[in-house]
Nucleic acid binder design. Structure first.
Lengths: 218, 218
DNA sequence: CAAAAAAATTAGGTTAGCCAAAGATCACAT
DNA sequence: ATGTGATCTTTGGCTAACCTAATTTTTTTG
């Protein structure tokens, strides 16, 4: 298995290849690689039973490919956790470092890291860390944008995007924070929220509010 | 700069390329790569001003190449320290992990690791960790292969290669051992040596004898 | 429903790095 | 001082991934 093959598996996974067929084009755009090269690589992955490729129809992961991808996500998120918790990186900067480290991480190293970090359940931006066997629980797909005014919710997960994370860092918002939704400004205006215990309200941009997943508080 | 180029720089550095000319053959044996491939890669490194190559005479590092190599050694040894001190790896197993991680370690990450480890001076095997600016101490760069028959020497340092270390462990050779060179068998045959106080001679493979550094006994 | 557009595949070519084997050079021992 | 073995370079060929361009298939649209 090469780092490039791993990148293909990961992007197919992220595009939803575990439950549906993913297009050549989306892989090509996601990796920045020419469509012809994608076809070529996909057929190699198919030879290795990691994906199923129906020509002109799409590409999906086999259970084996899905497990492999989940392990990569696990390694990625363990490194992110390490960088933030132990090396005091700020959480917007960890993605790039983890992106390269994940490919060089043996299962043994991942296990040792997991122990060292005391079995974290989620990475710094809230992504659930799959188990060593490649299982991962269901995650919330409810957007902050869809919360009702007055509702009290917990921020669960942010999309892994550097710009977004930098923005949220500035707003001092983190996964796990409890917030109350004050109101939705009209015309794609910001969402006004209040952190539990804080006096000042916070304006979260319309776009960001569509990139944050929440869990409703009991 | 690719991982392979980095490996070439590192082995040239370890073979003493900062102060003398290193042979194609020693690089070839150290990396397990055919001599012809070494010539090819060395000429690329020479184009990048990282080494000086005098055909048929030898290869040495430029100041630029030396600094680069020292930074790699630094990253390698920081990872080894981390693996042993924080993840509780045992000595024998850290080489492989560090070997791959070092190539994916940004300067920023190295600095953060160094802080986290509280500025260790040496790796778990006693190798001094170069400073961030690429300074490093003197060590022996005389090969066991170059010892004369009848000479009595002390084994000082083994190249950081898991297969080699496993092999030497089987032969019960360790750094610090005093040995007498009995003879060099022809046609790349083994080097026959005797440990101080032992009766049985030991055959050290031709290849291994090019991966062991010695200090002449006074 | 046929033509145009979009998407996917195939074909031919490039580069990095590897190898084996042939040929060139060096160095030591007679 | 020369021949032989050791070392080094050169040559030709391989594979993994990449690219662009041409072709084929599918989808959209007039």
């Amino acid at each position: 298995m090469t780092p490039m093959k791993e990148d293909y598996l990961k992007i197919i996974f992220e595009l939803g290849g575990s439950h549906k067929k993913v297009s050549n084009k989306d892989i090509s755009l996601g990796l920045g690689i020419a469509a012809g090269s994608v076809t070529e690589m996909v057929s190699k992955l198919a030879d290795e039973q990691l994906v199923v490729h129906e020509p002109y129809a799409g590409i999906s992961l086999t259970p084996k490919g899905e497990k492999y991808a989940a392990e990569l996500v696990r390694k990625h998120r363990l490194w992110e956790t390490f960088l933030v918790d132990k090396l005091h990186y700020n959480f917007a900067d960890v993605h790039q470092e983890a992106e390269v480290l994940e490919h060089q991480t043996s299962d043994r190293l991942a296990t040792a890291l997991d122990n060292f970090l005391q079995h974290p359940k989620a990475c710094p931006h809230g992504g659930v860390i799959p188990s060593a066997s490649g299982e991962f629980p269901e995650v919330s797909r409810v957007l902050l944008a869809d919360a009702k005014d007055g509702e009290k919710v917990t921020l669960e997960r942010f999309l892994d995007n550097h710009e977004l994370l930098t923005y949220l860092e500035e707003l001092q918002l983190r996964p796990g924070d409890e917030v109350t939704v004050v109101r939705h400004e009209p015309f794609e205006g910001p969402l006004v929220i209040k952190k539990a215990g804080a006096d000042q309200p916070i304006n979260v941009s319309y776009k960001a509010s569509h990139n944050i997943f929440i869990r409703a508080d009991k």
